Structures are given as C-alpha cells and as structure tokens.
Computed example of a mutant assay.
Amino acid sequence: MGFVRVDLFTTLDGVAQSPGAPDEDPDGDFAFGGWQAPLLDGVAGGWVQSGMVGMDALLLGRRTYDIFAAYWPEQDSEIAHLFNRLPKYVASRGTPPLPWAGSTLLDTDLPAAIRELRQRHENIHVIGSVDFVHSLLAERLVDEMTLWVHPILLGHGKKVFTGDVTPATLELLEPATTSPNGVVQLRYRVVGTEPPVGDMTRDDR
C-alpha cells in the first residue's frame, strides 16, 4: 500500500499561495506572488530535490497542473526529467484538457480515487496545490507532509491549514533543519485522528 505525501512551501504564518511567481495564483488580489524566490538557497533547493527520491507519481490540483504543464516539458534538468517521466494525476471538478504526457484525470470520488492510487503507486507526491490539499486533509487522505517554512509574514493569502481543518496527530520524522536563508524543513507523518489532551493544572502529571 502506497502513501500520499504533501510538499508545500509556506510562510511562517502559513501562507502557501503563489510562492514561485507573481502571476502563479493571483486569487483574492494576492500581492506577494513569488515570495519564495528571494529566500531560496542551495541548501533548501537540495532538500527539495532529495525529497523527490523514490517518487513514482505526481498528484496535482488543476491550477498547479496547468503551471507545471506549461513549464516543465520545456526544461532540461533532473527535476524536469523526473516530472516529465512520471505519471501525473489531476484533480478537477471539470473535464479540462491534459496535454502533458502521462496525465490522467482523477475520478470525482476523491477517497476512492486515492485508494486506487495507493494500490498502484508506492510514493505519491502532492506538490503545491493548496486548494486541493485542503480537500485531502478534510478527507484524511494525507499520510505525510513536508513543509518548507520561510521566515516571512504575509498576513493574508491561501493558507496550509484553514479554520475548519480536520483534527489530526502528527509525528516529526526527523529533527528540523534550517538553511542559510532561514528556511526550516519540517517532515511529518500523520499518525492519528484524535489528538490527545491533558491537564497542565494537575499536580500528578
């Protein structure tokens, strides 16, 4: 049985909208598109690339798919070769054209579609696609999550975790690491659906 891992670039206040370019996702008149670029360094870039080792499928929301499909087929790099070779599964409420080779539209029954993908693939990555990630989290369909937290505050924009996020317990898979520009890598596994609680006022704790 395979697993689904979410990979997201986020700010310290949880904004994951449009990290790569000004026009990537302007929804809500978002004014900070491309906020990741000034903070990218070789260490953080290396984390991203090493985190893709073993990936055997991409799972993307429609907007991220369109961005990737317009960019990666024209590139000549290790990541481009990987993305162009991998099967790509796309979540959409409509029936959009999928011109990128190896692309398949997911069934609208998301839990059933993810179960089928887990049977077919061992290491499925969701990259970006913050709107789609909200749906996956709501349906408890995320097994692991890697966050690259950048030392800036934007105040508004689409966030990784919304106000109605489904409760879950996470386990840190390895110690947090920090790049020279202050980007922090956090890798988690989802280990439970009912977070434990306690009472800090008790003397016998």
Results as ranks from 00 to 15, higher is better:
Asp7Asn: 15
Thr11Met: 07
Leu12Glu: 04
Val15His: 02
Ala16Val: 13
Gln17Asn: 05
Pro19Ile: 07
Gly28Leu: 04
Phe30Tyr: 08
Gly34Ile: 11
Asp41Val: 06
Ala44His: 07
Gly46Lys: 01
Gly46Phe: 00
Trp47Arg: 15
Met52Val: 06
Met52Cys: 04
Met55Gln: 15
Arg63Asn: 11
Tyr65Lys: 03
Ile67Asp: 10
Glu74Gln: 14
Ile79Thr: 13
His81Val: 11
Arg93Ser: 11
Thr95Lys: 06
Pro96Trp: 00
Leu105Phe: 02
Asp107Arg: 09
Thr108Leu: 12
Ile114Glu: 01
Gln119Ala: 13
Ile124Tyr: 01
Ile124Ala: 02
Ile124Trp: 00
Gly128Thr: 07
Phe132Gly: 03
Ser135Val: 10
Glu139Lys: 15
Glu139Leu: 14
Glu144Phe: 13
Met145His: 07
Thr146Asp: 04
Trp148Ser: 14
His150Ala: 14
Pro151His: 10
Gly155Phe: 03
Lys158Pro: 12
Lys159Asp: 09
Gly163Leu: 04
Ala168Gln: 14
Glu171Cys: 12
Glu174Gly: 08
Ala176Ser: 11
Thr177Ile: 13
Pro180Asp: 08
Val183Asn: 06
Gln185Glu: 13
Gly192Trp: 11
Thr193Trp: 11
Glu194Thr: 15
Pro196Met: 05
Pro196Trp: 09
Gly198Pro: 06
Asp203Ser: 15
Asp204Ala: 10
